[in-house]
């Protein structure tokens, strides 16, 4: 891992990937903060992690399952009542350009 100094373009790309609009006047400050956070992160380069497993789950529990049983949620109407825009029980959104 080399020191990755982030540029404006990189930030814009991350904004887009995160589905947020960059606020032009704040971008320079953000880049600065971002780079200092990454600098902090790069401290980890000092640590030798050869042959060390990555921890994705902190306790060793495995195989927690549920049986294949259906049970209907009792407050469906409550969920449907909080949709910001709807058409009947459908959620309404601006048209999706193309179905993937």
């Amino acid at each position: 891992m080399t020191t990755n100094k982030l540029q404006k373009n990189d930030i814009f790309k991350i904004f887009k990937l995160s589905r947020m609009h960059p606020e032009e006047e704040k971008v320079n400050k953000l880049i600065e903060e971002f780079n200092s956070i990454l600098e902090l992160a790069e401290k980890l380069n000092e640590v030798d992690t050869k042959n060390i497993d990555a921890t994705s789950h902190v306790h060793g529990a495995t195989n927690i399952f549920r049986e294949d049983k259906r049970s209907d949620f009792t407050a469906k109407e409550k969920i449907l009542s909080i949709m910001p825009e709807n058409s009947g029980t459908y959620i309404k959104v601006p048209i999706v350009i193309e179905q993937e």
């Binding site: 058409s87 459908y90 959620i91 959104v93 048209i95 999706v96």
Partner: peptide
């Protein structure tokens, strides 16, 4: 396309 919207289920 008429209402320019999609309905999600």
């Amino acid at each position: 396309a008429r209402t320019n919207s999609s309905l999600v289920d």
